[in-house]
Simulated scan of single mutants.
Amino acid sequence: MKRNPFLLVGVMLLVGTLLFAGGAKETEATSSSDIKIGMILGVGGLGDLSYNDLVYDGLERAQNELGIDFDYVEPQSIADFETFLQQMSSTKMYDVIISVGYDQVEPLKKVAPQFPNQKFAIIDENVDLPNVASFVSKEEEGSFLVGALAGLVKKTDSVKQNNTLGFISALDIPLLDRFYAGYEAGARYVNSDIKVVANYVGGNAPFSDITTAKEIALKQFSQGADIIYHAAGGSGLGLFQAAKEKDFYAIGVNSNQNVIDPDHIMASMLKRVDNAAFVIAQSLVNGDLKTGGLSVLGLASDGIGYTVAESNVPIDEDIIAVVEDIKDAIIAGELVVPNAHKDVEAFLASNSY
C-alpha cells in the first residue's frame, strides 16, 4: 500500500502536466500478488475513526490476507474527485478503482464512460454503468437496533427518565435519512412515548465539522435529549466531546466507536464498509467481480450490525436480549424497517412491539 501518490499529481494535472503513466494492466490478474486497487477516500480522509478508516481497514485486511496491493488518495474537497478518477484511470495500473461515498457519484458518472475497459466500484451508492460495481447498505436496519436499544434504556434507566432522544446528521440527504428513519422507528417501536429531535451539521465540511456537531449536541441536550445518535462521520467526535462534558450518552456509527469514550458511548451502529472493500478485493482474486450491478449489504449478510462491546455504560441483559430478538425478526423478514423518515408513521401504525 502506498499513501497518496496522486496528491502532487493532481495538482500538476491542473496545470497540464502528467507526472507519470503506467503500462496497460492485464485484464485478468494471474495471481493475487498481481492485483492492484486504487481507492479514492471521502473528504475528511483517514483519522475520522469512522467511515474512511473502515474502508481503509478492509483493503488493509485484503492486503494481509489475500496479498493484493493498493494505493489511496485523500481528497481535500469535492472538486478533487474527478481529478483523481481521471488520473488513476489514465495510469491503467489498477484492476479496480474504488470511489467512497455518495458525493463521488457525479464524478464517477462522468469519468467511467471515458474508460470503458477500466473497472470501477463505488461504496455507498448505486451508479448504473456497465463498468461500475455498486455496493449499498441497509443503514436503516442497524439504526433500528440502536434506536430500539435507546428506547428500551429510556424505559429502565433510573436517571434518564425523560423521553427525548437526539439525532445528528451531516446532511439532509436520502442516504443519511435512512439512519434517521431506522433510529426513530426503532426507538418508538419499543417505546411509544419517545420523541426524537434531529439537526444537521451542513456547511462546507459536514463530515468533519467537530465544532458544529458539538454545538448541536449541546443544544439537543438542553432540549432534554440525553441519548444522542450521530450519522456525521468525523463530525461525530463533537458529539462525544459534548457527551463527556455534560455526562449524557452517545451512540456511535460505522465502526465500534465505544472505545473512544467507554463511559459515555453506550453502543455503536456498525456499517461494515470494511467488508464491502474486502469483498471487492476478494472478488478480484477469485476472478468474479461483476460490474454493472448492485450489491445490498444488511443484517443478513453481516454488512450491518451494532455492538455494545467495550462500553462501560450499564445496559440490562434483558434489553440486549430484546434487541437480539428484533434483529432476528429483521433477518427473517418478519419486520421490514422503513428506509425513509416519511414512512416511519406508517410503519408504526402497522407494527406493534
Rank of each mutant, 00 (worst) to 15 (best):
V15S: 11
D80S: 09
E106T: 10
A332P: 05
L175V: 13
A243G: 03
S268R: 04
L108C: 03
K246S: 11
V146A: 05
E74R: 11
L218I: 12
V132G: 02
V337G: 01
E324F: 08
I194A: 08
M12Y: 11
L66R: 01
K154E: 11
N258R: 00
P107K: 04
G22Y: 02
G234V: 01
I227W: 02
M266E: 06
E28S: 13
S283R: 15
I227Q: 03
S33I: 09
S90T: 15
G142A: 00
A29N: 08
L18V: 14
I228F: 04
D226I: 11
D288I: 07
V322Y: 10
D157P: 10
D34L: 09
A267P: 04
S295Y: 15
K110N: 13
V197R: 06
P206V: 02
M1E: 10
L237N: 07
P206N: 01
I227E: 01
G151E: 07
D274Q: 08
V201T: 01
F207D: 00
G234Q: 01
L239S: 01
I227A: 06
A112W: 07
L218T: 13
M1L: 12
Y72M: 05
Q114M: 15
A21P: 13
G287D: 11
E334N: 14
G293N: 15
F120K: 08
A277E: 05
L176F: 08
E310H: 12
Y200F: 09
G44M: 00
L18Y: 12
K342Y: 13
T212V: 09
I304P: 06
T30E: 14
D95A: 08
A21S: 15
S192R: 11
D209F: 02
L66Q: 00
F207P: 00
Y180A: 12
E106F: 09
K110S: 14
G67E: 02
I331F: 06
Y353P: 15
Y249V: 07
S31F: 07
G44C: 00
E317N: 14
G16C: 00
K271N: 06
N275V: 15
L66A: 03
N258P: 04
A346L: 12
P116N: 12
I251H: 06
I304A: 09
G10E: 06
K342W: 11
V196W: 09
L13W: 13
A62I: 02
